[in-house]
Design a protein around this nucleic acid. Structure first.
Lengths: 351, 351
DNA sequence: GTCTAGCAGTCCCTCTCCGAGAGTGCTAGC
DNA sequence: GCTAGCACTCTCGGAGAGGGACTGCTAGAC
């Protein structure tokens, strides 16, 4: 979780408590934390002068820094990571929020609606940007494929993945095909290739085309031709909600930062790359400040986790906001949403 | 095109030319136009003092105003309307842009892709926000409806409208239905109701349910039940592209305006209402500044036009940006895109 | 040794002031 | 009817001063 190569300097209990207080206070208040502010909490029974000494040590060790000489302290990336890993107390998602989440995700009937709801929930509950990475259709497992004649040479191809993603596409064929042939072609493809990813299927199709039978069996040839046209893979899709929410954050007080932010969003490729990195790891992961190109420019953080459909990892989801975010709430929330979405996707075709 | 009730004061040719120059210069440069700037163009052979007199007249008549005493002049809403109606010279969409537009819209195979492309093109070519209002499914004309069994009690319902909009929805039925019954139900509905809007169909279904035959004919009852579940109407959809583009506009120099802007976008209902007003009228229409609630807060303008599929008006499309926009380019562009999209939608099922 | 009171020093932020610049309206004269 | 010239107004940006918030350091208390 902590890409920094520097070894963290050891801290005694008191130092850790002070560090936790400083970071917690900074996250709540949004302003550099002064020694006096920490002393006033009276939890440690120390004067501001003593706190000052400790804070100077913590700065030396790389966990805090000063925006300018006569200012309070602010966490560094290393500070945040230590806070997340060892100092903060996670706050479980409240029952009320959980119910809200469950009801919204259950109300959706297919995977597209579910992922859309997830992205909205992420943004709504954190007041930050919610992101959900949806796998390219090519990486989903085929459940059904169906061809429907629409008019003359137009055929509608409907692909349903086993996790509930539905994609339809109008294709144009060389000559009109009868409804029954289309149904048979759909059945053939569903039976032959159901349970495989579209990527696999594409590879197998190449083999099937060379098959001797394909030269003689009209239906087989037709099926292959249709599949070739319709099972092309798209790019992975990125849902993003709540970009407007961010404007209420005080860290975006000046316009040049807002511009930077929107440029960062425009370049979705970078965000997709980060979210892809997330697929490999197990649980929630946080990129803070300098950890990544995307987050460093703006002093932002990305907290993300992978979600599954059954055993298969599908994509990842998370939130993007200022580094100063309530990690103690946000991390459990991202975790909960990843679990809830995973379960919903696994359940899609139960009935 | 001009909702103002005030009678426009009559202007002689020279006044109109000066007004046109002032507005044109303001649109290009973005700063209040001084008498000296107009005089320097030497088109009128007048000194800045004379121009000053004329500009003072134009202000009195309500076409120009001064941001403050010692500043140049800026157009009023009335000024812009006069400019659009009578003063500016429209600049036809360049052949290169037209080719670009045609190729992008032709590349899309269904109506959703076409409207999405249109919205992107609007934003890309004007560097402002492109909007496309897509009719509620209920207002589209049914071409085909098809039911596909997916698993157990889940049935996928695919509706294709005659203009090429495709909507699919997973519905859960009480007990598993055989594939053949589903196909027959789809055929029955397509044959009975094809050519009608979904809104009509819903009304007719109510009648059909009371039909005596429905009590005996199993297939008929099944069709009606399926249709009831799947032909529910959604809300009209609003596509919006290029909100980030706007941040590059100098009129959004201060953050409070940016916030207002994003709040305005958030409240899509208002925008939908304006775009709906556009459906009735024939061609391009412009709302400027105080013309509407939406545009007045921010000193923005909306330039929009309806688009059709065949004879039927489908929705509207346009661009949203600062009142200071290049109407001479933008209006022909919106017109061209409305025509191009209309033609494409009419052509969808030609083959 | 550890902690703290007190103090000097640093830096930021805000307010005010002032001058430069741009543009206007008005007047007198061509 | 047009224009040169002038006084006036308003904005904008920079300089400078004062106040406030912290810190680091030192010397002394426990």
């Amino acid at each position: 979780m902590r890409p920094s190569t520097r070894l963290p300097a050891p801290l005694n209990t008191r130092d850790r408590e002070i560090l936790r207080d400083v970071i917690y206070t900074f996250i709540s208040a949004g302003e550099p934390v002064s020694s006096r502010a920490v002393a006033k909490q009276e939890r440690h029974g120390l004067s501001s002068a003593s706190i000052r000494n400790i804070m100077a040590d913590l700065e030396e060790k790389g966990y805090l820094r000063q925006p300018h000489t006569s200012a309070g302290r602010v966490p560094t990336t290393a500070g945040y990571h230590l806070y997340i890993e060892a100092l903060m107390r996670q706050r479980a998602v409240p029952v009320k929020e959980r119910r809200y989440i469950d009801s919204h995700i259950d109300a959706a009937s297919d995977a597209d609606q579910r992922t859309a709801a997830t992205s909205q929930l992420l943004s709504e509950l954190t007041h930050q940007v919610g992101v959900v990475l949806i796998p390219a259709l090519a990486d989903t497992v085929l459940k059904t494929v169906e061809f429907v004649p629409v008019s003359g040479r137009r055929v509608l191809c409907v692909v349903v993945s086993s996790s509930g993603f539905i994609d339809s596409k109008l294709v144009e064929v060389e000559e009109p095909i009868g409804r029954e042939d289309l149904v048979r072609a759909g059945n053939y493809l569903t039976e032959t290739f159901g349970g495989h990813t579209l990527r696999d299927i594409r590879d197998r199709l190449l083999v099937a085309m060379d098959d001797e039978r394909a030269q003689v069996d009209r239906l087989l040839a037709l099926s292959i031709a249709l599949a070739k046209k319709s099972l092309t893979d798209g790019a992975p899709e990125l849902l993003m909600d709540g970009t407007a929410e961010l404007l209420t954050q005080p860290e975006l007080a000046d316009l040049s930062r807002v511009r930077l932010l929107f440029e960062a969003f425009h370049d979705k490729a970078r965000l997709v790359r980060l979210l892809n990195q997330c697929l490999a790891g197990g649980g929630v992961r946080a990129w803070i400040g300098e950890d990544s190109e995307l987050t460093s420019e703006l002093d932002f953080s990305l907290v993300a986790a992978p979600y599954r459909a059954g055993e298969r990892v599908m994509g990842s989801l998370g939130i993007l906001g200022p580094s100063r975010m309530e990690y103690d709430k946000v991390i459990p929330l991202v975790e909960y949403l990843a679990d809830t979405l995973s379960e919903a996707l696994a359940r899609t075709f139960e009935t």
